[in-house]
Protein backbone atom coordinates (compact mmCIF):
# COMPACT_ATOMS: atom_id res chain seq x y z
CA UNK A 1 0.00 0.00 0.00
CA UNK A 2 1.18 3.48 -0.82
CA UNK A 3 0.15 6.30 1.46
CA UNK A 4 0.76 9.96 0.74
CA UNK A 5 0.06 12.25 3.63
CA UNK A 6 -0.14 16.03 3.42
CA UNK A 7 2.49 16.05 0.74
CA UNK A 8 3.70 19.49 -0.27
CA UNK A 9 6.58 20.54 -2.45
CA UNK A 10 7.55 24.11 -3.14
CA UNK A 11 10.31 25.29 -5.46
CA UNK A 12 12.11 28.58 -5.22
CA UNK A 13 11.73 30.36 -8.50
CA UNK A 14 13.73 33.52 -8.15
CA UNK A 15 12.12 35.44 -5.31
CA UNK A 16 8.75 33.71 -5.34
CA UNK A 17 7.96 30.17 -4.26
CA UNK A 18 6.13 27.86 -6.62
CA UNK A 19 3.97 25.21 -5.00
CA UNK A 20 4.21 22.24 -7.34
CA UNK A 21 2.45 19.78 -5.02
CA UNK A 22 -0.06 21.20 -2.59
CA UNK A 23 -1.17 19.14 0.39
CA UNK A 24 -1.85 15.88 -1.44
CA UNK A 25 -3.35 12.94 0.46
CA UNK A 26 -3.76 9.66 -1.39
CA UNK A 27 -3.94 5.97 -0.61
CA UNK A 28 -3.12 3.52 -3.35
CA UNK A 29 -3.94 -0.15 -2.80
CA UNK A 30 -1.67 -3.08 -3.61
CA UNK A 31 -2.10 -4.35 -7.15
CA UNK A 32 -4.01 -1.28 -8.21
CA UNK A 33 -3.41 0.64 -11.43
CA UNK A 34 -3.71 4.20 -10.25
CA UNK A 35 -3.73 7.10 -12.69
CA UNK A 36 -2.90 10.71 -12.04
CA UNK A 37 -4.05 13.02 -14.80
CA UNK A 38 -3.35 16.70 -15.23
CA UNK A 39 -2.09 19.24 -17.71
CA UNK A 40 1.61 20.08 -17.78
CA UNK A 41 2.52 22.12 -14.74
CA UNK A 42 -0.15 20.49 -12.60
CA UNK A 43 2.53 18.97 -10.38
CA UNK A 44 2.10 15.36 -11.38
CA UNK A 45 5.73 14.90 -12.48
CA UNK A 46 6.97 16.25 -9.18
CA UNK A 47 4.51 14.07 -7.29
CA UNK A 48 5.61 10.84 -8.97
CA UNK A 49 9.27 11.73 -8.35
CA UNK A 50 8.60 12.12 -4.66
CA UNK A 51 7.38 8.52 -4.63
CA UNK A 52 10.87 7.18 -5.33
CA UNK A 53 12.76 9.94 -3.58
CA UNK A 54 14.10 11.63 -6.73
CA UNK A 55 12.52 14.74 -5.25
CA UNK A 56 12.34 15.51 -1.55
CA UNK A 57 9.00 16.94 -0.41
CA UNK A 58 8.96 20.19 1.54
CA UNK A 59 6.59 18.58 4.01
CA UNK A 60 4.47 15.46 4.34
CA UNK A 61 5.26 11.79 4.09
CA UNK A 62 5.18 8.91 1.62
CA UNK A 63 4.86 5.42 2.98
CA UNK A 64 5.34 2.50 0.61
CA UNK A 65 4.59 -0.92 2.06
CA UNK A 66 5.50 0.23 5.53
CA UNK A 67 8.67 2.07 4.58
CA UNK A 68 8.75 5.86 4.89
CA UNK A 69 10.41 6.83 1.60
CA UNK A 70 10.51 10.45 2.64
CA UNK A 71 12.53 9.73 5.78
CA UNK A 72 15.31 7.58 4.37
CA UNK A 73 18.39 8.52 2.42
CA UNK A 74 21.72 7.23 1.17
CA UNK A 75 22.15 3.47 0.87
CA UNK A 76 18.75 2.76 2.38
CA UNK A 77 16.98 4.94 -0.18
CA UNK A 78 18.98 3.43 -3.05
CA UNK A 79 17.97 -0.02 -1.87
CA UNK A 80 14.31 1.05 -1.63
CA UNK A 81 14.42 2.41 -5.20
CA UNK A 82 15.06 -1.07 -6.49
CA UNK A 83 11.56 -1.94 -5.32
CA UNK A 84 9.94 1.21 -6.71
CA UNK A 85 11.08 1.35 -10.30
CA UNK A 86 10.21 3.80 -12.99
CA UNK A 87 9.64 4.08 -16.74
CA UNK A 88 9.87 7.32 -18.66
CA UNK A 89 8.29 9.26 -21.50
CA UNK A 90 11.54 9.33 -23.45
CA UNK A 91 12.57 5.83 -22.37
CA UNK A 92 15.95 7.02 -21.05
CA UNK A 93 17.87 4.01 -22.27
CA UNK A 94 21.66 4.05 -22.44
CA UNK A 95 22.43 4.25 -26.15
CA UNK A 96 25.89 2.85 -25.52
CA UNK A 97 24.42 -0.44 -24.34
CA UNK A 98 22.52 -3.16 -26.16
CA UNK A 99 19.02 -4.25 -25.14
CA UNK A 100 20.56 -7.04 -23.09
CA UNK A 101 23.01 -4.68 -21.37
CA UNK A 102 20.34 -2.06 -20.72
CA UNK A 103 18.16 -4.57 -18.94
CA UNK A 104 21.20 -5.83 -17.05
CA UNK A 105 22.00 -2.34 -15.79
CA UNK A 106 19.69 -2.31 -12.73
CA UNK A 107 20.85 -5.84 -11.92
CA UNK A 108 24.47 -4.66 -12.00
CA UNK A 109 23.51 -1.88 -9.62
CA UNK A 110 21.87 -4.41 -7.33
CA UNK A 111 25.06 -6.51 -7.43
CA UNK A 112 23.53 -9.56 -9.13
CA UNK A 113 26.21 -11.93 -10.51
CA UNK A 114 26.60 -12.22 -14.29
CA UNK A 115 25.10 -15.70 -14.73
CA UNK A 116 21.97 -14.73 -12.83
CA UNK A 117 21.70 -11.48 -14.77
CA UNK A 118 21.74 -13.30 -18.08
CA UNK A 119 19.06 -15.69 -16.87
CA UNK A 120 16.85 -12.86 -15.62
CA UNK A 121 17.25 -10.83 -18.82
CA UNK A 122 16.20 -13.85 -20.87
CA UNK A 123 13.01 -14.11 -18.85
CA UNK A 124 12.26 -10.36 -19.08
CA UNK A 125 12.93 -10.13 -22.80
CA UNK A 126 10.41 -12.94 -23.23
CA UNK A 127 7.88 -11.18 -20.99
CA UNK A 128 7.95 -7.87 -22.87
CA UNK A 129 8.00 -9.52 -26.29
CA UNK A 130 11.49 -8.61 -27.42
CA UNK A 131 13.03 -12.06 -27.81
CA UNK A 132 15.64 -12.05 -30.56
CA UNK A 133 16.45 -8.36 -30.20
CA UNK A 134 18.83 -8.72 -27.25
CA UNK A 135 21.88 -7.54 -29.16
CA UNK A 136 20.29 -4.55 -30.84
CA UNK A 137 21.22 -1.05 -29.76
CA UNK A 138 18.41 1.36 -28.80
CA UNK A 139 19.04 3.35 -31.99
CA UNK A 140 17.95 0.30 -33.97
CA UNK A 141 14.61 0.01 -32.16
CA UNK A 142 11.23 1.68 -32.69
CA UNK A 143 9.67 3.81 -29.96
CA UNK A 144 7.41 1.00 -28.81
CA UNK A 145 10.32 -1.43 -28.62
CA UNK A 146 12.37 1.10 -26.66
CA UNK A 147 9.58 1.40 -24.11
CA UNK A 148 9.46 -2.39 -23.87
CA UNK A 149 13.14 -2.33 -22.99
CA UNK A 150 12.34 0.39 -20.45
CA UNK A 151 9.65 -1.80 -18.93
CA UNK A 152 11.88 -4.88 -18.85
CA UNK A 153 14.61 -2.81 -17.21
CA UNK A 154 12.16 -1.51 -14.63
CA UNK A 155 11.02 -5.03 -13.79
CA UNK A 156 14.53 -6.47 -13.45
CA UNK A 157 14.78 -6.22 -9.67
CA UNK A 158 11.24 -7.55 -9.08
CA UNK A 159 9.78 -4.25 -7.90
CA UNK A 160 6.59 -3.93 -5.89
CA UNK A 161 5.62 -0.65 -7.50
CA UNK A 162 6.05 0.58 -11.07
CA UNK A 163 5.94 4.33 -11.66
CA UNK A 164 5.08 5.41 -15.20
CA UNK A 165 6.03 8.95 -16.12
CA UNK A 166 3.99 9.74 -19.26
CA UNK A 167 5.16 6.37 -20.52
CA UNK A 168 3.09 6.44 -23.70
CA UNK A 169 3.07 10.15 -24.49
CA UNK A 170 5.83 9.87 -27.07
CA UNK A 171 4.22 6.94 -28.88
CA UNK A 172 1.68 6.73 -31.69
CA UNK A 173 -1.88 5.58 -30.80
CA UNK A 174 -1.41 1.99 -31.91
CA UNK A 175 1.88 1.54 -30.05
CA UNK A 176 0.35 3.29 -27.04
CA UNK A 177 -2.38 0.64 -26.90
CA UNK A 178 0.14 -2.19 -27.20
CA UNK A 179 2.23 -0.78 -24.36
CA UNK A 180 -0.88 -0.23 -22.22
CA UNK A 181 -1.94 -3.84 -22.81
CA UNK A 182 1.52 -4.92 -21.71
CA UNK A 183 1.21 -2.88 -18.52
CA UNK A 184 -2.17 -4.46 -17.71
CA UNK A 185 -0.69 -7.87 -18.40
CA UNK A 186 2.22 -7.20 -16.05
CA UNK A 187 -0.13 -5.83 -13.42
CA UNK A 188 -2.19 -9.02 -13.52
CA UNK A 189 0.68 -11.48 -13.85
CA UNK A 190 3.05 -10.00 -11.30
CA UNK A 191 0.48 -8.38 -9.05
CA UNK A 192 2.47 -5.18 -9.15
CA UNK A 193 1.05 -1.81 -8.20
CA UNK A 194 1.23 0.70 -11.05
CA UNK A 195 1.12 4.45 -10.54
CA UNK A 196 1.02 6.37 -13.77
CA UNK A 197 0.86 10.02 -14.69
CA UNK A 198 -0.49 11.20 -18.00
CA UNK A 199 -2.33 14.00 -19.72
CA UNK A 200 -4.28 11.58 -21.91
CA UNK A 201 -7.69 10.45 -20.69
CA UNK A 202 -7.44 7.56 -23.13
CA UNK A 203 -4.70 6.04 -20.99
CA UNK A 204 -6.80 6.39 -17.86
CA UNK A 205 -9.85 4.92 -19.56
CA UNK A 206 -7.96 1.98 -20.94
CA UNK A 207 -6.01 0.70 -17.98
CA UNK A 208 -6.63 2.52 -14.70
CA UNK A 209 -8.80 1.37 -11.85
CA UNK A 210 -8.86 4.69 -10.06
CA UNK A 211 -7.84 8.15 -11.07
CA UNK A 212 -6.85 11.39 -9.38
CA UNK A 213 -7.22 14.64 -11.30
CA UNK A 214 -4.58 17.23 -10.48
CA UNK A 215 -4.71 20.95 -11.03
CA UNK A 216 -2.39 23.57 -9.57
CA UNK A 217 -0.65 21.02 -7.36
CA UNK A 218 -3.87 19.79 -5.75
CA UNK A 219 -5.89 16.64 -6.26
CA UNK A 220 -9.22 18.16 -7.28
CA UNK A 221 -11.10 14.96 -8.00
CA UNK A 222 -10.54 11.35 -7.08
CA UNK A 223 -12.51 8.23 -7.77
CA UNK A 224 -13.19 5.07 -9.66
CA UNK A 225 -12.50 5.51 -13.36
CA UNK A 226 -16.02 4.53 -14.36
CA UNK A 227 -17.54 6.91 -11.86
CA UNK A 228 -15.34 9.76 -13.07
CA UNK A 229 -16.38 9.09 -16.65
CA UNK A 230 -20.02 8.90 -15.72
CA UNK A 231 -20.24 11.92 -13.45
CA UNK A 232 -17.26 14.20 -13.70
CA UNK A 233 -17.71 16.98 -11.17
CA UNK A 234 -14.95 19.48 -11.74
CA UNK A 235 -14.70 21.56 -14.88
CA UNK A 236 -11.20 20.22 -15.59
CA UNK A 237 -12.37 16.62 -15.21
CA UNK A 238 -15.17 17.26 -17.68
CA UNK A 239 -12.61 18.55 -20.14
CA UNK A 240 -10.51 15.43 -19.71
CA UNK A 241 -13.53 13.18 -20.12
CA UNK A 242 -14.43 15.15 -23.25
CA UNK A 243 -11.02 14.14 -24.69
CA UNK A 244 -12.34 10.65 -25.27
CA UNK A 245 -15.99 11.48 -25.95
CA UNK A 246 -15.39 14.71 -27.81
CA UNK A 247 -16.68 13.66 -31.22
CA UNK A 248 -20.28 13.17 -30.11
CA UNK A 249 -20.41 16.17 -27.81
CA UNK A 250 -19.04 18.93 -29.96
CA UNK A 251 -21.56 21.48 -31.17
CA UNK A 252 -20.58 20.80 -34.80
CA UNK A 253 -21.50 17.15 -34.41
CA UNK A 254 -24.85 18.03 -32.87
CA UNK A 255 -25.55 20.53 -35.59
CA UNK A 256 -24.61 18.02 -38.21
CA UNK A 257 -26.89 15.37 -36.67
CA UNK A 258 -29.72 17.88 -36.50
CA UNK A 259 -29.37 18.51 -40.20
CA UNK A 260 -29.45 14.78 -40.91
CA UNK A 261 -32.39 14.13 -38.57
CA UNK A 262 -34.50 17.26 -38.59
CA UNK A 263 -37.62 15.75 -37.05
CA UNK A 264 -38.36 14.40 -33.58
CA UNK A 265 -36.05 14.67 -30.58
CA UNK A 266 -32.39 13.71 -30.48
CA UNK A 267 -31.62 12.08 -27.15
CA UNK A 268 -28.23 11.07 -25.83
CA UNK A 269 -28.14 8.11 -23.46
CA UNK A 270 -25.23 7.27 -21.22
CA UNK A 271 -24.93 3.70 -20.00
CA UNK A 272 -22.52 2.64 -17.34
CA UNK A 273 -21.37 -0.80 -16.25
CA UNK A 274 -24.09 -3.45 -16.25
CA UNK A 275 -26.68 -1.19 -17.86
CA UNK A 276 -24.67 -1.37 -21.02
CA UNK A 277 -25.67 -5.02 -21.21
CA UNK A 278 -29.39 -4.63 -20.34
CA UNK A 279 -32.10 -4.69 -23.05
CA UNK A 280 -33.41 -1.25 -22.12
CA UNK A 281 -34.16 -0.21 -25.67
CA UNK A 282 -36.41 -3.20 -26.23
CA UNK A 283 -38.45 -2.17 -23.20
CA UNK A 284 -38.70 1.37 -24.46
CA UNK A 285 -39.96 0.37 -27.89
CA UNK A 286 -42.47 -2.13 -26.51
CA UNK A 287 -43.99 0.16 -23.93
CA UNK A 288 -44.28 3.45 -25.76
CA UNK A 289 -45.66 4.31 -29.17
CA UNK A 290 -42.55 6.14 -30.26
CA UNK A 291 -40.40 5.50 -33.25
CA UNK A 292 -36.79 4.86 -32.22
CA UNK A 293 -33.97 5.39 -34.63
CA UNK A 294 -30.38 4.71 -33.60
CA UNK A 295 -28.24 7.54 -34.87
CA UNK A 296 -24.90 6.85 -33.27
CA UNK A 297 -23.52 4.53 -30.64
CA UNK A 298 -20.30 3.79 -28.91
CA UNK A 299 -19.18 1.55 -26.06
CA UNK A 300 -15.86 2.16 -24.34
CA UNK A 301 -14.28 -0.38 -22.05
CA UNK A 302 -12.49 0.52 -18.88
CA UNK A 303 -10.82 -1.77 -16.37
CA UNK A 304 -13.91 -1.34 -14.19
CA UNK A 305 -16.53 -2.14 -16.81
CA UNK A 306 -18.11 -0.71 -19.92
CA UNK A 307 -19.24 2.81 -20.53
CA UNK A 308 -21.42 3.65 -23.50
CA UNK A 309 -23.23 6.43 -25.21
CA UNK A 310 -26.08 6.10 -27.64
CA UNK A 311 -27.76 8.83 -29.60
CA UNK A 312 -31.39 8.14 -30.53
CA UNK A 313 -33.90 9.93 -32.65
CA UNK A 314 -37.30 9.68 -31.00
CA UNK A 315 -40.36 10.44 -33.10
CA UNK A 316 -43.92 10.58 -31.88
CA UNK A 317 -46.29 12.69 -29.81
CA UNK A 318 -44.59 15.05 -27.37
CA UNK A 319 -46.39 13.47 -24.40
CA UNK A 320 -45.23 9.99 -25.38
CA UNK A 321 -41.65 11.16 -25.80
CA UNK A 322 -41.74 12.71 -22.35
CA UNK A 323 -43.04 9.42 -20.91
CA UNK A 324 -40.32 7.53 -22.70
CA UNK A 325 -37.70 9.80 -21.17
CA UNK A 326 -39.20 9.24 -17.73
CA UNK A 327 -38.94 5.50 -18.30
CA UNK A 328 -35.25 5.84 -19.08
CA UNK A 329 -34.81 7.87 -15.95
CA UNK A 330 -36.46 5.08 -13.91
CA UNK A 331 -34.04 2.61 -15.45
CA UNK A 332 -31.22 4.82 -14.19
CA UNK A 333 -29.99 5.61 -17.64
CA UNK A 334 -28.77 9.15 -18.00
CA UNK A 335 -30.66 10.71 -20.86
CA UNK A 336 -30.36 14.20 -22.15
CA UNK A 337 -32.20 15.86 -24.97
CA UNK A 338 -29.66 17.41 -27.28
CA UNK A 339 -30.24 21.10 -27.66
CA UNK A 340 -31.64 22.49 -30.89
CA UNK A 341 -29.06 25.09 -31.64
Amino acid sequence: MIELKQLTKTFDVGKTALTAVDNVNLTIADGEIFGIIGYSGAGKSTLIRILNGLEKPTSGTVDINGQKITDIKGAELRKARQKVSMIFQHFNLLWSRTVQENIEFPLEIAGVPKAKRVEKVKELVELVGLAGRENAYPSQLSGGQKQRVGIARALANDPEVLLCDEATSALDPETTDAILDLLVDINKRLGLTIVLITHEMHVIRKICHRVAVMEGGKVVELGDVLEIFQTPKQEITKRFVAQVTESEDSSETIKHLRELYPTGELVKLIFVGEQAEQPILTGLIRKYPVEVNIVQGKVSHTQRGAYGTLILQLKGADAEIRKALEFLDQENVQAEVMAND
Binding site: R81, Q82, F88, P106
Partner: peptide
Protein backbone atom coordinates in the same frame (compact mmCIF):
# COMPACT_ATOMS: atom_id res chain seq x y z
CA UNK B 1 16.80 11.58 -18.26
CA UNK B 2 19.40 8.83 -18.48
CA UNK B 3 21.07 10.05 -15.30
CA UNK B 4 17.66 10.29 -13.66
CA UNK B 5 16.87 6.75 -14.77
CA UNK B 6 20.10 5.49 -13.20
CA UNK B 7 19.25 7.30 -9.97
CA UNK B 8 15.77 5.80 -10.02
CA UNK B 9 17.38 2.36 -10.11
CA UNK B 10 19.35 3.12 -6.99
CA UNK B 11 22.74 3.80 -8.59
CA UNK B 12 25.45 5.49 -6.53
CA UNK B 13 27.19 8.55 -7.94
CA UNK B 14 30.28 6.39 -8.55
CA UNK B 15 28.22 3.99 -10.63
CA UNK B 16 26.66 6.88 -12.51
CA UNK B 17 30.14 8.21 -13.39
CA UNK B 18 31.49 4.82 -14.45
CA UNK B 19 28.43 3.37 -16.14
CA UNK B 20 26.52 6.38 -17.42
Amino acid sequence: GVIEAARSMGATTGTIIRKV
